[in-house]
Amino acid sequence: MNATVESRVDTAIIDEIISRHKGKPGELLTVMEEVQEASEFKFLDDASMEYLSSQTRVPLSRIYSVATFYSFFNLKPQGKHSLIVCRGTACHTKGSKILLDDLALLPGCKEAFDSGETTFTSEDKQITVKTVACFGQCALAPVVAVDGVIYSNVTSEQIKKLLQNLQEDNKDENFRLS
């Protein structure tokens, strides 16, 4: 767990993903998603993109262009856990910004979001914090998703607890909060 996160996805895995989707229109997005999923740190590294491009003959710049367009693609290594705060209007008016500020407990997190970033990964690669435009769970605002599980009507107390459990790898504790 240090700075060397050159998590290049095994080319055999990429080959397998490509062959499984070959010929399907729009395959590129699906293939890219699966390659990202196969990567240890859930991101598309440049070497994997290069390999993907050489095998599919899709220009590398186009793969990059697509990867930067959609919020689901990560160009940087992601943390082991994800904590996503909804900044949709309903959540926003019900205090999602405060929740984001509460995450200042994670060093560097508040600064990143204040400077306009929409994603932040802790240095130890334990947690990635993101915001999302809207979860479509507005009736439950404010909403937070932790490793894909939705938490509703989240309070400052709760989000701090959620964060702490993730930091301590105590995921099961979190389920009790949902």
Binding site: L60, S61, Y64, S65, T68, F69
Partner: peptide, 9 residues
């Protein structure tokens, strides 16, 4: 050549 592309949104 496709050296240039539009990225981000």
């Amino acid at each position: 050549v496709n050296a240039l592309t539009m990225s981000y949104k």
